[in-house]
């Protein structure tokens, strides 16, 4: 996956003749969002995915945070990829990732105080989210900056979409609401609190992954 290995720059589409991202933009986006989705396929970053999905608004902000952090850190790490000594590679990654996480956290606290209170420690915990460092190690260190940033955005988006889907089900069934608006009327609908609590997250995610695996034809069915 070196920079010289680009085969079809013309097929890239929007980004200038494919020179910036080696003509892999389409594949990068498809991989991050669908074919290699960080949550539903790689099952990474589950901790936060389970914790913040009891409300759609929380899930969206968390998704946005991850897109921002993964994109920025992948971009920077890719810029520095040839200048970073191998020995302290990981420490450098964590330092850069945590810087962007804290910057986002500070902005959230400054302008969306209520949201930052609701998300509690989970924004800060993005530092330890496997997706961010995973993309840094697996992609940003071998690819050019723009491609890496795109990969970060795509993976963040993949995470955000799955979170949003889980949150829609949990908030709707668990509270009868969506983004705070009443959807299922209290008159005939009794909210199922289980969906708001932790087990609801496990059930939803499990069912979602099973459904997605059933939909995908390229997943090999392993038999014991």
């Amino acid at each position: 996956m070196t920079a010289t290995a680009s085969k079809s720059p013309a097929a890239c589409g929007p980004c200038a003749a494919g020179l910036l991202c080696d003509g892999k933009a389409g594949k990068i986006v498809k991989d991050g969002v669908w074919a290699n989705n960080p949550i539903s396929i790689q099952v990474l970053g589950i901790c936060s995915a389970l914790a913040v999905t009891n409300k759609l608004a929380n899930a969206l902000v968390m998704g946005g945070a991850l897109i921002f952090v993964t994109a920025c850190s992948s971009l920077f790490l890719s810029f520095l990829r040839n200048a970073t000594p191998r020995k302290i590679r990981m420490i450098a990654e964590v330092a850069i990732i945590s810087t962007f996480v804290i910057v986002f956290d500070q902005l959230l606290r400054a302008f969306y105080w209520d949201m930052s209170k609701q998300l509690g420690p989970y924004v800060g915990l993005i530092i330890t989210n496997c997706i961010v460092m995973g993309r840094a190690e697996a992609f940003a260190l071998q690819n050019r900056p723009i491609a890496s940033a795109l990969d970060g955005i795509a993976n963040g988006l993949g995470y955000a979409i799955v979170l949003a889907v889980i949150a829609v089900f949990r908030e709707m069934i668990g509270a009868g609401k969506l983004l705070g608006f009443s959807i299922l009327d209290k008159v005939w609908y009794e909210p199922n609190q289980l969906m708001i609590l932790a087990p609801g997250a496990f059930f939803t995610l499990g069912i979602l992954i099973a459904l997605l695996n059933a939909l995908r034809k390229d997943v090999p069915e392993t038999k014991p």
Binding site: T84, A92, A95, I96, I102, Q106
Partner: peptide, 20 residues
């Protein structure tokens, strides 16, 4: 490298903290 990276990160954090 470590010193420079540390200083740059610290500067960014300080700026964000001061701003917020």
């Amino acid at each position: 490298y470590a010193v420079v990276l540390g200083v740059v990160c610290a500067a960014m954090l300080t700026a964000a903290g001061q701003f917020a």
